[in-house]
Design a binder for these strands. Structure first.
Length: 492
RNA sequence: CGGGGUGUAGCGUAGCCCGGUAUCGCGCCACAUUUGGGAUGUGGAGGUCGUAGGUUCGAAUCCUGCCACCCCGACCA
């Protein structure tokens, strides 16, 4: 464990990168653009998965698994979708290697093993799944079809960053089919709300629920809903999307169903997903110059106990008390780590667990044994207090809840302070340059204006928020009328 | 993919211009003393100098290709 993390204020992206590596979340791999997710990072992802999976099940979805490869002919069936992803696809063209006759000990692609039809490594699974749905759906009785899959996908990105953008990433993708547009839209919105709830209650990240402009829509969707969070450097991060696909994929893959009345109609689709990018959101939303600050609900270790002792005898005395406390806390569903390593000193352990973002740290030494106390340090505020040992079993669960709430509130306050209403383009540019964050401004609804702003300021329309009140105004550039403000920001 | 930069022990680095197999710190291992905020001493181990070629008696050093990473653009969850 090396000392010192770069400061957020000095170099935010360097800070992020170093933090992810030093906290043991992930590291770069031998494969271009692909990361290794390390045990501590994966433990957080597993917690996310479990919570989300439960939420999906609670809303009636089932898990299934579809192939990694998509035959090119299927991939190109829905044109918009195919075009949208075409530039970032990994393609399998051969199925065999052979020893290279020119280079001993080396392999080469067997030129005689060319695939009849190329296979695309899925960048998303609509094509394979809708092709499958064709065989699963005949009647209105088969609907709605509510499926989720946990999988990896590959998008050949030019520039990658740990968790935020990697060539291969882990995600879940829900794919549903419905008898009516209304039902599909309701599903789209329901899953957006599931994501928003997860972001706010678990990641402790307040998010804007909104809908994307046509130019930012998912390729092949009629509408893309999203949740947008604000990171500490004032840049926005799209944390999840939910798409209303209309009948686009049903038509492309000929998925029809017999209605109750005896008619034959195309089904209506949705798809929705969140990825390991949420890990990036988690890191960037709360962490500080000392390391990670994990929300208790997602922390693999919620409480770490560091014994402070001289000699074996004292350690044994402390251990006895600690093991009992550990058991009682674990009975309440709290994960506790007793760091009784004899190879590191307390100060080192303090720093290490701070780097790893453990929400609550207890220190127990000879002094505490005498007084029947323990020192309690909380990661979010760095405050330390001395508590009666016997009260810890009730004190700690309450403290964990308080920390969860506090970091949410902190992030919420930050977002509010960094959301600015502007009415002129001058002001707009000035806010983006100096303060960053979300900028609420009127927009005339045209892709031309949106594009111009993007080119001139690098800010994009993150979304049209679902709960924005109507407000008459004029576009800050063209002066054309506008009925509501939209969220602009520079984004990841 | 275009422009710029970097690659030397687990990590951070010196050496490169001007060729003669490598410097320092942290970490690691052993022992001892330590332990309430990143310990100290003594001894020790660890290097295909990103990689593949080339030039040369000899390459970390010069030349070429490739790979990876970082920064700035274009693309994007």
């Amino acid at each position: 464990m090396s000392k010192g993390l770069p400061k957020r204020s000095e170099d935010y992206s360097l800070w992020y990168n170093e933090l992810v590596k030093k906290a043991g979340l992930a590291e770069n791999s031998a494969v271009r653009g692909c990361m290794v997710i390390k045990p501590y990072g994966f433990a957080i992802w597993e917690k996310m998965q479990r919570v989300l999976d439960d939420m999906f099940k609670a809303t009636g979805h089932e898990n299934a698994y579809f192939p990694l490869f998509v035959p090119k002919s299927l991939f190109e069936a829905e044109e918009q979708n195919a075009e949208g992803f075409a530039k970032e696809c990994a393609v399998v063209t051969h199925y065999r290697l052979q020893t290279d006759p020119d280079k001993p000990g080396k392999l080469r692609v067997d030129p005689n093993a060319k695939l009849e039809e190329e296979l695309i490594v899925r960048p998303t699974s609509e094509a394979v799944i809708w092709n499958t749905y064709k065989g699963w759906i005949q009647s209105y009785r088969d609907l709605p079809l509510l499926i989720n899959q946990w999988a990896n996908v590959v998008r050949w990105e030019m520039r990658t960053r740990l968790f935020l953008r990697t060539a291969e990433f882990l995600w879940q993708e829900g794919h549903t089919a419905h008898a009516t547009a209304e039902e599909a839209i309701a599903e789209t919105k329901q899953m957006l709300e599931v994501y928003a709830t997860f972001a706010e209650q678990y990641i402790a990240l307040p998010v804007i629920r909104g809908v994307k402009t046509p130019s930012e829509r998912f390729a092949g969707a009629l509408d893309t809903y999203c949740i947008e969070g604000l990171m500490q450097d004032g840049k926005a991060l799209q944390a999840g999307t939910s798409h209303f696909l209309g009948q686009n994929f049903a038509k492309a893959f000929d998925v029809k169903f017999a209605t109750k009345e005896g008619g034959l109609e195309y089904v209506w689709g949705t798809s929705w997903g969140v990825s390991t990018r949420l890990m990036g959101a988690l890191v960037m939303a709360h962490s500080d110059d000392e390391g990670l600050v994990l929300p208790p609900k997602l922390a693999p270790i919620q409480v770490v106990i560091v014994p402070i002792y001289k000699g074996e005898e004292q350690l044994a005395q402390i251990s006895e008390k600690v093991m009992q406390l550990k058991k009682e806390l674990e009975a309440k569903g709290i994960s506790v780590k007793f760091d009784n390593r004899d190879t590191e000193r307390p100060g080192f352990k303090f720093a290490e667990w701070e780097l790893k973002g453990v929400p609550v740290r207890l220190a127990i030494g000879a002094r505490d044994l005498e007084n029947g106390t323990a020192e309690v340090a909380r990661r979010d505020t760095k405050e330390k207090s001395t508590q009666q040992f016997d009260s810890l079993v009730t004190y700690i669960p309450a403290l964990l809840d308080e920390i969860q709430e506090n970091i949410y509130n902190r992030a919420y306050t930050f977002r509010e302070e960094n959301t600015t209403k502007v009415d002129s383009y001058e002001e707009f540019k000035q806010v983006l340059d100096t303060k960053g964050g979300f900028v609420l401004a009127h927009w005339d609804g045209t892709p031309e204006t949106e594009e111009r702003i993007k080119e001139e300021t690098k800010a994009t329309i993150r979304c049209i928020a679902l709960d924005t009140p109507e407000e008459d105004g004029v576009d800050m550039i063209t002066g054309k009328p506008s009925k509501q403000r939209v969220y602009f920001a520079k984004a990841y």
